[in-house]
């Protein structure tokens, strides 16, 4: 790891000032992704701006029909939060299935979505539940946030402040973990709300995507049986030593059916 400057920010404003004052600064959240990358010298920022002291970024609140999760809220905190458990149990369950206890006690929702790993779990929740990502500059709709592999709509000096999840009528997440890493080979969030049905798929492609044909079928008939015979096109799906595109396509179907059945 290269030497770097460490700045601890006490607020969002301090964080932005510190970042803008650095040549090549990066926000540090849980460090679960950033620090290993730095140890491998794949990233060599000259300054880390630690967000841990910015208390406005931490915590979960219920605001009417919305659950707002602060960017620095850990996976463990989301998983065990009683408001989340009551309003969107699928979100609590998703958070409880990320990594291992160490990762869940350090890793944050802001870090996870800013990082936009194609195999991460949270993107399925953000898109599936039609969340809004609130930054220091603007509010970004879920469908516009994740762009590509490790690529989001965030600008260089844009900080995720919180994520607002509208409370769905029902929702469920099903994940097929990579046997080695336990990241998602395929993860599917199915949600039904007043606006309609959403099926968001993570792990399978370069970035989280919505399975349109599944959403249409489920809109007509919200049952696993309605998905019989449907499949996602495997052409754009990932292939690696763990799963071929065809296997991933199958898993998208199976995980969606199981999520529907669990709703």
């Amino acid at each position: 790891m290269e030497a770097f400057n460490y700045r601890k920010a006490g607020s969002v404003d301090e964080a932005l000032v510190a970042l803008n004052g650095a040549d090549d600064g990066k926000f540090l959240a849980g460090g679960m992704t950033l620090l290993p990358t730095m140890k491998q010298m794949l990233a060599t920022p000259d300054t880390l701006v630690d967000l841990a002291g910015a208390s406005e970024l931490v915590g979960v609140s219920r605001d009417g029909d919305t659950i707002v999760v602060g960017a620095m809220t850990t996976h463990a905190a989301v998983a065990s939060n009683s408001d989340v458990q009551a309003a969107i149990p699928a979100l609590a369950a998703l958070a409880s299935g990320i990594g291992d206890p160490m990762v869940r006690n350090r890793g944050t929702i802001g870090g996870s979505i800013a990082n936009a790993d194609p195999a991460a779990d949270y993107p399925a929740a953000v898109v599936g539940l039609n969340a809004t990502v609130n930054t220091n500059k603007r509010s970004i709709a879920a469908d516009d946030f994740f762009l590509d592999v490790f690529e989001t709509a965030l600008e260089e000096d844009e900080l995720v402040v919180s994520v607002s999840f509208p409370i769905p009528l029902k929702a469920a997440y099903r994940k097929f973990p990579n046997p080695a890493s336990r990241y998602a080979v395929v993860g599917v969030m199915v949600a039904q709300s007043a606006e309609g049905i959403r099926v968001a798929v993570t792990g399978a492609a370069a970035s989280v995507f919505r399975a349109d044909s599944f959403e249409q079928a489920l809109s007509a008939d919200f049952s696993a049986a309605a998905l019989e015979g449907l499949s996602v096109d495997s052409d754009n799906l990932n292939e690696d030593i763990h799963a071929s595109a065809a296997y991933r396509a199958n898993l998208v179907g199976v995980m969606t059916k199981r999520a529907v059945a669990a709703c």
């Binding site: 990579n178 046997p179 080695a180 890493s181 990241y183 690696d240 030593i241 763990h242």
Partner: peptide
């Protein structure tokens, strides 16, 4: 059921970490 070292045709160990080598 899980473990297996995989080399690609260039002789690179594809399963060179716990991300891919399944313990």
């Amino acid at each position: 059921l899980m473990e297996g070292a995989v080399y690609d045709s260039n002789g690179q160990l594809v399963t060179g970490s716990y991300m891919d080598y399944c313990m």
